[in-house]
Design a protein around this nucleic acid. Structure first.
Lengths: 339, 339
DNA sequence: GTGAAAGCGCTAACAC
DNA sequence: GTGTTAGCGCTTTCAC
């Protein structure tokens, strides 16, 4: 059987309190007994039970990560970044994919809370607190950080990229290449980051003195197929744009595929720019010009925020806004017909 | 504060033992007290602490999943499949990415064991028990299942695809298209599945009466770049093949990229077939012909095996071998120069 | 049918 | 410096 603190105490000829003290480096103990106990622990290969200590000491060194879909490369990459930092700090991560279903989000949240996780990193949820499990988490005073999402009305630790700036950069890049008629394919409107990117798009247009055309905004879901369909309708419309700003790489890839199917060449006939810079951006042909989110850093910051919140070494809530970066590849270029 | 079993007992006017019995549906209790207690539990929004019950009742409803890399779409998809089934059965999953480092594998294994996980699903590890954390897991009698890996010398629950058959199917498809000179880009030799795929390749060659040429086997790592480099050397060799069997989609994608850079057209000048059928296969142009692993099923079976092992509702160890399936897309075709 | 009581493995006063 | 002891929230005999 797995040795317990009692076994160590007995074999060392001390009390369990003493053993506990050497484990946790608390109280005062003589060098000699510390050495003795340490030696016995090694001998027995003793490992304190995290479960038992969680029942008293409070923390489980485990947190939950709630994302829309682990099979989505963007979130998988984020999760990996968070995981790495968490492991460095001695924490484990329970993962939950919600498929953006509020039901699942609520269910997983209370599941996690029951398991006494020390905190939760949330990457899902709509704009409003009402539409998320945040209310429950906050009311139980469990540390939480939002990643790649925001909830402006609440004081919550948040790490995200400046979506407005990203949208502006993307659009400005297109304009610089000489495009005037630029469409944007955006995700649901009730997602803040999507709205912000569109806002950046409009700002870039306005900066360049290009009038905004409502019909140049297409909303869609978040699958490749959604991107494909949106692109199709854009191409087949009477007056297609010469460039597309897709609000994320997945949609951009769908758009490129649709273009290929309809024999519209990218970037010769139409430029496409994405957002996120996941691995996928380099897989597709032509390789995707996109706005890079610093995924590694985001994951790291999120883990750091959560864990310092857990350990109580932090007071004020923070909002860390990282800067996106334009990565030029092959899917954008000058419009064929100069105007 | 979170209500405990004591709060429920007090409010219901019964003992904690009785409450425990209604929670777990054990022992005998009258309908009326059961109803009463249930009602109070709802009222208080009582949720039993899994931590506390784990300290006695033994199981934590949590297991570990050890994979090489969460950011690798193949493993992310597997993890997602496992996660879904686990959640259906009331379990949570702690994820650990090892980057194929034995050190990390060992570290994470003992971490998980300390956290009293009920079991572990392992997707990493070399061929030999010595080179994996299996020894520790097994010696502690913790349920374990291997997914997409095997350890033939040990009696362990395993879920995998018939790699030999997959290799054979891939190669046979190429032969059917008229190829004679077929190279294979394989992962490290110390990985069983890779060796099996190569064995299938040889069998297909032999079935077709095509002599085996040692120089047609290239070994490499598991990144896109590794695939790229291998492809480059193959193309630039004096006598390049007309078709490539890449042992996984990632390598295949690297190969296609290298071909594109060297202006070798796929599939006109060279056919490429992959293995796994991850999302990536449909992203790349030309879309990748590949051997599909039934990822969803694999994940589901692995979770089922592990959990029935945990619950003790299973006796004999099983080895579930699923069948791969050829998915023809656009990266394979007839060789340009008929022989 | 129900409850008292003894743990599960550990932490944290507090006493010596 | 070290040990005693009272929990943490729950399960599980074993009486009644």
């Amino acid at each position: 059987m797995k040795p317990t603190i009692y076994d160590v105490a007995e074999k060392s000829g001390v009390s369990i309190a003493t053993v506990s003290k050497v484990i946790n480096n608390t109280g005062r103990i003589s060098k000699s007994t510390r050495e003795k106990v340490t030696q016995i622990m090694n001998e027995l290969q003793y490992q304190p039970s995290i479960i038992a200590s969680a029942l008293t000491g409070k923390i489980t060194f485990t947190f939950g990560m709630i994302i829309p879909d682990l099979a989505n490369p963007f979130f998988a990459e984020i999760a990996r970044a968070v995981e790495d930092r968490a492991h460095e700090l001695g924490f484990s991560m329970i993962i939950c994919s919600t498929d953006n279903s509020l039901d699942k989000e609520l269910k997983y949240t209370s599941l996690l809370l029951n398991k006494n996780v020390d905190g939760i990193i949330l990457a899902t949820g709509r704009d409003h607190e009402r539409d998320s499990s945040l209310h429950e988490i906050i009311s139980k005073k469990v540390p939480v950080v939002l990643i790649a999402r925001e909830m402006p009305a609440l004081a919550i630790d948040t790490v995200l990229v400046d979506d407005y700036l990203g949208g502006l950069q993307a659009t400005a890049h297109l304009i610089e290449q000489g495009h005037q008629r630029i469409a944007v394919i955006a995700e649901y409107e009730n997602i803040m980051s999507s709205r912000e990117r569109v806002r950046g798009y409009k700002a870039a247009l306005s900066n360049a003195g290009i009038p905004f055309d409502e019909s140049m905004i297409v909303n869609c879901g978040h699958s490749i197929d959604d991107g494909k369909q949106s692109m199709r309708s854009l191409i087949q419309s009477g007056n297609p744009p010469t460039a597309i700003f897709a609000c994320n790489d997945i949609i951009a890839i769908g758009a490129i595929q649709a273009a290929r199917e309809l024999e519209v060449k990218v970037p010769d006939h139409m430029s496409v720019i994405g957002f996120d810079n996941t691995v996928m951006a380099t897989l597709i042909a032509p390789q995707l010009t996109t706005i890079a989110q610093p995924i590694k850093e985001m994951g790291r910051y999120a883990a750091d925020l959560l864990i310092s919140e857990i350990k109580g070494t932090k007071s004020a809530k923070q909002r860390i806004v990282l800067l996106p970066e334009l990565v030029v590849r092959q899917s954008t270029g000058e419009p064929q017909i100069a105007k």
